[in-house]
Design a protein around this nucleic acid. Sequence first.
DNA 1: CTGTTAGCGCTTTCAC
DNA 2: GTGAAAGCGCTAACAG
Lengths: 341, 341
Amino acid sequence: MSTGGSQKRVNLQSVAEEAGVSRATASLVLRESPLVSAETRKRVIAAMHKLGYIYNRGAANLRRQRTGTIGVVLCNIGSPFYSKLLIGIDEVFVDAGIVALLVNSAENIERQMRQIWRLREHGVDGLIICPAVGSDETLLSEIEKTGLPYVQVLRHVSPTAGDYVGPDYAGGTDLAVSHLVRHGRRKIAFLGGNPVHSAACERLEGFQRALRRHCLESDLIVPTDLDNLSDFGSLESLMASASPPDAAICYNDMVALSLMGRLLSEGELPGRDFAVIGADNLPQAATSFPTLTTIVTDPVGVGRNAARLLLDRITEPRASSMRVLVSGQLMVRESCGGPLP
Amino acid sequence: MSTGGSQKRVNLQSVAEEAGVSRATASLVLRESPLVSAETRKRVIAAMHKLGYIYNRGAANLRRQRTGTIGVVLCNIGSPFYSKLLIGIDEVFVDAGIVALLVNSAENIERQMRQIWRLREHGVDGLIICPAVGSDETLLSEIEKTGLPYVQVLRHVSPTAGDYVGPDYAGGTDLAVSHLVRHGRRKIAFLGGNPVHSAACERLEGFQRALRRHCLESDLIVPTDLDNLSDFGSLESLMASASPPDAAICYNDMVALSLMGRLLSEGELPGRDFAVIGADNLPQAATSFPTLTTIVTDPVGVGRNAARLLLDRITEPRASSMRVLVSGQLMVRESCGGPLP
DNA sequence: CTGTTAGCGCTTTCAC
DNA sequence: GTGAAAGCGCTAACAG
């Protein structure tokens, strides 16, 4: 075949011929089997390079009945937090020779189902999924019906069913409350988003539990819109009330930074007049004015743990399900407890 | 259902048997061929549902010699900017029935090469790549050698070779300079990162060209470390010099927000005492104190365009290569030109 | 150690 | 309209 534009794809067959061995032997060389002599191996490898051979995983997968790919279903691939999660997942997968198929449910549960279906068609060996808002246990039973191993991350659809890896939201919020109390704050508000999924619920519960422990009332709970940061809902009226809050724990740093912006523009200095604590430790938290005290969660760690748990689950499908909580810390800066700017 | 762990995987064969037709006919039904009668189609579809059939794309791919997957090689999947890009890419791919295989070069050119190799093994039909720092034209020739269609995004390794889609960095910087000049600023600094890749270079060139057009000197170019925002390098000495800058254009909003934090902590009010312009329009830019004027690039648009261009390139491999610049705008807020807080 | 053989699940001529 | 047969490129028994 004279190589005009469409030369025949080089496959194991051609490599084997070039090296003067059989396809089977060449295949063994590929997978670094010790069964093949150094001499033969060398010849085969030389042939591979000479011909520019590229291993066809698709064909191998078809034969071996597994693909070395794993589906990752996130509900908001645009968020930095999720990207960090991906980094952790990717880290483990790279070591295990696995590629992630990333899909986005965009918080839409029909789309989530469609995407999972698509991943199945692609033959993924497992699933890491952050359930879209509105998912319930039928999600898990749908997945289980197909026999595909899976791990939930960041959110779960039930407090007990299925494997789950996530940050210790409640513990983090608890740290924040204790810190505020230690610094003399007594009227603590919670700008907590809406408890539409397990993560938000756990934060809220952590908040309420911590307040109870410190014998404080938890009546300053403000739902916030995470997409429209300029809207602090009923915070306005709280601030104007008879006993306004002197501190706030925010759903995340985005909310906290916005709140600080708002306070500044009203002439109040966060950290002195009003304590603010965020969550996530965005890069900006370290350089804002004032710098932001924040609950540090470890999304990369969550990703790593989820990936590892899934790999375990794939090799050990019958083991009983697990809940992994990755603990966080408090990064103390100027907005609460740190030296004032 | 007592599914005894290892029931035979249901394939097209079983569906065909169940429906009382041949494999070939069943296959036609799958792909919605008009060649099959409504009656038969109905029977086959019923059989598929009954058996819980899942299409095996791997097998189909092997046969058709294409996979319906595309490799996306990014150099920093953790950055929000890249996540936005992914959203645009994903949007187009979902419509085209394509799945993205996402890999991370982590700005490491060996890893980049390894990952590309891996993607090839998975049989991707094309590549969207943001070249890691240090990549040169050999990257393109390596890819071209394999005959795989590709599109560069956000950065390119040569001003002419290969397809490229990116924001109009130079144009954006130009907008910013004109805006500053319009507001009476004359000593404009550029906190521009290091020009280690095409994006940074284009921003810098845009800056210099714009200053020339306004007959200003462009001697206030400060390389900044994008990972360590608290370090503004020689900015310190600039500010202390005989003719200090009265404005700064920053590499991105992260740098700009840090700079504003710094200014505030030194008692200067950004927007009044010193104008600051960022780039990217992060959510925080709208809620910081003061709010941040910023060059709005459109990463989602870049992603969409890159994905579409790649799809074109796949169907039309011989067409000559293209450069697409996605234009941006200036979002005017308090830190320059907007009403003072 | 190496070769032979028989598929993995699907698509695609080409007959009928 | 539908079916029969021939692979896509690889791996896994099993022989030698």
